[in-house]
Every structure is written in C-alpha cells, then in structure tokens.
Nucleic acid binder design. Structure first.
Lengths: 208, 208
DNA sequence: CTCATGACTGAACGCTGTTAGCTCAAATGA
DNA sequence: TCATTTGAGCTAACAGCGTTCAGTCATGAG
C-alpha cells in the first residue's frame, strides 16, 4: 500500500534553487514569444512550457507585464551590443554615425515582435506604460545616439544645435521607418534597404 | 392572463430600418472607443450601449476587427479633410508642403487612440493585418503627400528624385514622430512643437 | 525532531470574442 | 387575408484569457 503511493509520480515540480526558476520562466517566455509572438505568450502557455502551474509564475513576477518588460529589457541589452559592434571598423565620423543608425533599424527589423513589444503600447494598460519605460539600457541607447550627433557637430558635418532635440528627432524618424517596414512592408513600393539609405541621407543632409 | 403577458416589457429591441442599426453600432463603438480606448471597446460593451445583445453585432459585422476597421476608415476620411483644409491660405509651395506635414502629425496627436488603432498592429491577429489595410482613403492620403513632394521638385525646392521613395521616407519620419510623441511624451526632453518644426526642417533641407 | 517558511497546486472568478440554436416580428406571395 | 419565408434579435454556452484564493507539502532552521 505504502509503496504503491510512492510509485505515484510527483505532481509537484521540485523547487528551483536560487534564481534558477525565474531564469527558466524568462527563457521559456522568450522562446515562446519569439516563435509565436505576443499573442502566443500567455501565462498558461509559459507555465506549461516550464512544467509548472500558471500560479507559480506569480511567485517570481507580479504580473504578465513584468515578464514582457523583462524580455524588452533583454532586447535593449542586445541592442546596446549591436550598436557598439556597428562602430567597429569605422574610420570616419560620418561612417560611424550612419552605421549606428543603420544598425538600429536593422536590429529592429530582425526581431519585429521584440521591437513591437518594446515600443508599441498594447491595448490593455490604459495608463500608457510601455515595457521600455524604466529600463536603464533605453537611456544608454539614446545616449549613444546623442553622442553620435555631438561627434558629427564637432567634426563639422552637422551645424551646431541642440543635440538632445536633434537626437530625438532622428530617433523619431528611425523609429517610424522601422515600424513602417515591420507593419506595412507589403504596402511599400520601395525596398527596405533603399528606404534606410534614403532616410540616412535625409538625416545627414538635413542637419548638415 | 393574456393581458398580464402583454404587459411584460419586450426584451427584444425592434429591428432598425435600412442601415440604421449598423450606423447605430458604429456610432456607439466610436463613442466608447474615443472615451475609453481600445480596451474599453468590447463587443459586450458596444452591444449594451446600443441596447442589443452581443450576438446582434455579428449580423452587421463579421467580427470585432471589422468594427475597428470601420472606425479607422472614418479616421482616414477625416484626415483627408484636414489635409485638404491645411492647404488653404498657403501662398508658397513650401508653405503648403510644410502645412500638410504639420497637419498630419497634429491630427494624429489630437486623437492618439485613433492613430494607434489605425496604424499600430495589435497583439492578436498574428497574420499582421492592420485596420489601415484595404482602405482607399489611406492611398489617397499618401497620394496627397506624394503630389506635395512632386510640387516641391517642380518648384525647385527639392532635388529631382523618386517621388514615391521620398514620400515613403517622409511618411515614415512623420509617423515615427507622431507615435513617439503619443507614447513616449514623458520621456522626451523637447517640446512636441519644437520636434515637429525640427522634423520639418530636416525633411525640407534633407531633400532640398 | 519539530516548526515555520514559501514554492507550488487546483479551483475558481470575471473577463474576453465568438458560435449554436432558438424565437418571433415583419415582409412576401397566393 | 392568411400562410410562409426570412432574418434580426435573443439566451446560453464554449474556450480561452489574467489573476486570486486557500490549501499542501518539501525543505531549511532551530
């Protein structure tokens, strides 16, 4: 009798040690998200991927939003690396500047769902909070752009001006291009690469 | 007995005549949407606003997406009017061009939820269809922009070039600015109006 | 060895969009 | 005028969602 009870498979998944389980949840959520998009990344789906009940997720994250925000943060972290890598083998200031902008758009296009998740507000959360809020890496990324603008000014390629306002304007333009290529690619008559180059030309000439 | 039955208030709302009921649903949906955002505009909420059961909506619209698309179409129709109005009292080609671009962004900012609904894909619908797809007014709006670009070329304010590609680039930049001001206003250090003017300068100089 | 902690569970709540099956008023044809 | 067809409306339900509650039970501490 007692040995029969022992042969019953344990229903409960043993607890993870340290931050092991949290990382496991995040990895599963990221995997599902990248493969099936936001809509596929439900709490129940993530939990079943981890092999845990949906309630267990709430031990490590206050709500679904927090999981998505963690994914967005990881995306920003990667973006920083890509931006840095884009500066390698660049000899001229303008070349480095253009490479950075190009890298931003291309990184967004390479992972459209991540880009949407990070920047585009979802219908729920009326308070307007975005995953990219309160992520320090977001500020770092902007600082990279702004210092690029200042380098362009010092090199005489850009007229003097408010580097913050100019960087924000440029970011808006790049962001728009990324979003539009992601969501409206089939409506565009121009190839994405051509649009990117045209955008870079407009930026460089526009502030030069 | 029979008169008692007759005094029971009719549960069923009498049918509308012609396209009356459909317009009524659309009006209710638009009203709720503008006041409470996408999240508030649920099928049950819309139906109760009309005074009808949720199922009745499916007589007039195949699904919720169709209702939202109809709202987006109305938004585009309004946009066309605003773009046209912006051309009044403009004496110079460049003045008219700038006025049109400015009107686009400001119209988006004036109705942020509508702008999001129209252009920003929602997490559901993995097939990537947007409400702005298959709306003729969208093509007209783009044509307005493109003809503005061509007018600028003919006036010698823009270098000769592919007006389609240039118009798409400009639209991307304007779109990005609109989206960013809508969603990230609190993160921006520059006032929206200043960003708009800076963007217009960049565009005009960039292609001039 | 006992006890407290907290990671985990199943069941449930209140939502959501959508569908099936029914009712019944109005329009139509004889 | 009356029978029949049509289709607009209904209730009830399904499957899924995020989230919460109350309980369980392995584990580490004293």
């Amino acid at each position: 009798m007692s040995e029969f009870i022992q042969t019953i498979p344990r229903q409960r998944k043993p607890r993870g040690h340290g931050s092991e389980r949290k990382a496991e949840i995040l990895a599963a959520a990221t995997r599902i998200f990248l493969q099936e998009g936001v809509a596929g990344a439900t709490m129940r789906r993530i939990a079943s991927e981890v092999g845990v009940s949906p309630t267990a997720l709430y031990v490590y994250f206050p709500d679904k939003e927090a999981i998505l925000e963690a994914i967005a943060q990881a995306w920003f972290f990667e973006l920083l690396g890509v931006l840095q890598a884009s500066q390698a083998n660049q000899t001229s200031v303008e070349g480095a500047f253009r490479a950075g902008l190009r890298a931003y758009v291309e990184f967004g296009l390479a992972r459209p769902d991540s880009y949407r998740l990070t920047f585009l507000s979802r219908p729920d959360n009326r308070d307007g909070k975005l995953p990219c809020d309160d992520i320090p890496e977001a500020d770092y990324s902007f600082a990279v752009l702004q210092s690029g603008v200042e380098a362009m000014m010092q090199a005489g390629q850009f007229r003097p001006g408010d580097s913050t306002a100019i960087a924000e304007t440029i970011w808006a333009a790049l962001h728009g291009l990324t979003v539009i290529v992601i969501d409206q690619a089939e409506h565009l008559k121009t190839a994405p690469n051509r649009l990117i180059e045209q955008m870079l030309d407009m930026v460089v000439r526009g502030f030069g």
